[in-house]
């Protein structure tokens, strides 16, 4: 051991010990430099340069394992639905029944057309036929539903608004089942299955009969429906 120190102090750098020490020192400096560099945030990125690849994984893991972070993650996870729920992608026109992270059932649907309608007699009355997005819940489930036509349905068809409320009732157009998820929106059937997979509805979610039956029977009242 003493020889090692002597070789260093004697200036005999070519000896093995001296070289080893010099190498270790260089490694130390390099390691320190990299460690400090990895702590830089995106705020320190040079303008116009691509983002770096993920920083040191060791650091990420350490921060993930911090007890407070774990607590927060658990709190976020606890908000996820517990039982069965539906997810609807309005861009792809797909509906998934899910339990946890696993997909139980997948179906093609039709969602809102994104078109607008203006009442010619009152231009302030406008409707945007879009499927609402966000978190909803099954509010009621109806067998053999009938459609109570809203005002826009008459305006769209160029008809006068009916005086008698019974003239608003139309049967046989919603399929065998309907699932209400709020604000007059339903998941229901359709006679025109060839339009499934396209954005053609007034905001409701249309499904083929056999898919609708599965969804109707799977989703209990109160089950969450997430639409995006």
């Amino acid at each position: 051991m003493f020889n090692f120190f002597r070789s260093f102090s004697d200036g005999r750098w070519k000896s093995g010990w001296g070289l080893l020490l010099a190498g270790l020192l260089l490694l130390t400096v390099g390691f320190l430099f990299l460690s400090i560099k990895a702590t830089d945030t995106a705020a320190s990125l040079a303008p116009g340069k691509p983002a770096p690849s993920p920083g040191l994984k060791k650091r990420d893991v350490r921060s993930e394992l911090a007890p407070e972070d774990q607590k927060l993650r658990k709190a976020i996870q606890s908000l996820s639905p517990k039982g069965i729920y539906a997810v609807v992608d309005t861009a792809k026109n797909r509906l998934w029944l899910k339990r946890g992270e696993s997909v139980v059932y997948e179906a093609v649907v039709s969602t809102g057309s994104g078109t607008t309608l203006t009442d010619p007699k009152n231009p302030d009355r406008r409707w945007l036929f879009e499927t609402p997005r966000g978190e909803f819940r099954v509010q009621s489930k109806i067998r053999n539903p009938v459609w109570i036509k809203p005002d826009w349905a008459f305006i769209e068809e160029g008809e006068a608004l009916p005086i008698d409320a019974r003239d608003r009732v139309e049967g046989g157009v919603l399929g065998e089942y309907a699932i209400a998820f709020g604000n007059g929106y339903f998941i229901h059937g359709t006679l025109y299955t060839r339009m499934l997979g396209q954005n053609v509805t007034h905001g409701c979610i249309r499904m083929a009969d056999k898919d609708l039956e599965v969804v109707y029977k799977s989703l209990p009242n109160g089950a969450p429906i997430y639409i995006f």
């Binding site: 792809k92 349905a153 068809e157 025109y192 396209q198 053609v200």
Partner: peptide, 16 residues
């Protein structure tokens, strides 16, 4: 010539 809104087969819509 009129059909119910829910039976209409119009192809005017906005897609992704």
């Amino acid at each position: 010539t009129r059909v119910s809104s829910l039976l209409s087969t119009e192809t005017v819509f906005v897609s992704v």
